[in-house]
Amino acid sequence: MTSLRHNEPDRVEPRDSYLDAARDCILDVGWRRTTLTEVARRAGVSRMTIYRTWADMPRLLADLMTREWGDVVADSLAHDDPDAPTVERLVRDIVGTVQRLRENELFVRIVDLDPELILPYLFSRRGRSQDGILERTVAALREAQAEGAARPGNPVSMARAMLLATHGFVLSAHTMVDDQVSLGDLDAELALALTRSLQP
């Protein structure tokens, strides 16, 4: 996956190297068996170096997920067609992000081994990544409305409804796939539903 989190691709900040070590730990042994001590060992630094940055694993995980999901969105936007109509571009970005999340190895590992880590963001509160996605979506909706390409309405509530609609396609799409319906079929339906919901 292409990462857009650094202006200089070959430069790795210490904090990112620590998050990389945590990511490797979770991929190898899962969240429950990953400790700050093991992260420090893999990063090649002292345990206190990691503790000075994160007091506990939940805080480290929150930063790791924010970085990871932000990279997923950035990767989707990197494949964007800047000349496409605003609504078409927005829908393509959303569907592309859904697809990349489903394929992301860290996301898949968390859902398979530690799905309870995702539950707070579905039932209790929004995360930083969700807020970032909403901010981008609201901006795109305002642009589309100004062009007359999207229907009138509160872009904030429209963006939140769109995000809620995509949750199932990220987390549960596999339950709807069989010899009659493919993931591609479902994604096409998502694109159609989002497009029609935005038409003036």
Rank of each mutant, 00 (worst) to 15 (best):
D93W: 15
R92C: 06
V95S: 01
D75S: 13
V98G: 09
R89P: 02
D80V: 15
F107E: 06
V108A: 15
V111W: 02
S76G: 00
D80T: 11
L90G: 07
R92H: 11
L101S: 13
S76R: 04
N104C: 14
L101C: 13
L101N: 14
D75R: 05
D80A: 15
N104W: 05
P82C: 01
D80H: 08
D112W: 01
V87Y: 05
V111I: 12
V111P: 12
Q99T: 13
D112N: 04
P82F: 01
Q99A: 15
V111L: 15
F107D: 08
R100I: 01
S76M: 05
A84H: 12
R102V: 07
A84K: 08
L77N: 03
T86V: 15
R100G: 03
R109V: 00
L106P: 00
G96L: 02
V98K: 05
V111D: 06
V108D: 15
Q99N: 15
E88M: 13
I94V: 04
L106W: 09
R100V: 00
D93A: 15
L77R: 04
T86Q: 07
R109S: 07
D112H: 05
H79W: 10
R92I: 00
R100F: 04
E88C: 12
E103Q: 07
E103P: 04
V91M: 10
L90H: 02
L113N: 10
V98F: 07
L106C: 09
E103T: 05
E88Y: 05
G96N: 00
D93Q: 14
G96M: 05
L90F: 04
D75P: 15
L101G: 14
R92N: 10
R109A: 13
T86R: 14
L90C: 03
A84E: 12
L106Y: 06
D112S: 03
V98S: 07
D83M: 15
G96A: 00
P85M: 12
V108Y: 10
G96E: 00
I94C: 08
V91Y: 00
R100Y: 02
T97Y: 12
A84L: 12
E105C: 06
L101D: 11
A84Y: 14
E103V: 13
P85I: 04
L113S: 04
V111K: 08
D80R: 08
E103H: 07
G96W: 01
E105P: 10
D81Q: 04
D83E: 14
D81R: 09
V91T: 06
D83N: 14
A74H: 03
R109C: 10
V91L: 06
A74R: 00
D80P: 13
V87K: 09
R100A: 12
I110H: 13
D75N: 12
T86L: 12
E103M: 13
L77M: 09
V98R: 03
A78K: 04
L77C: 11
L113Q: 14
R102H: 02
Q99G: 11
D81Y: 11
R100Q: 09
V108M: 11
V95L: 01
N104S: 12
H79M: 13
L106T: 01
D80W: 11
T97S: 11
L113W: 03
G96V: 01
R92G: 06
R89I: 02
R102A: 04
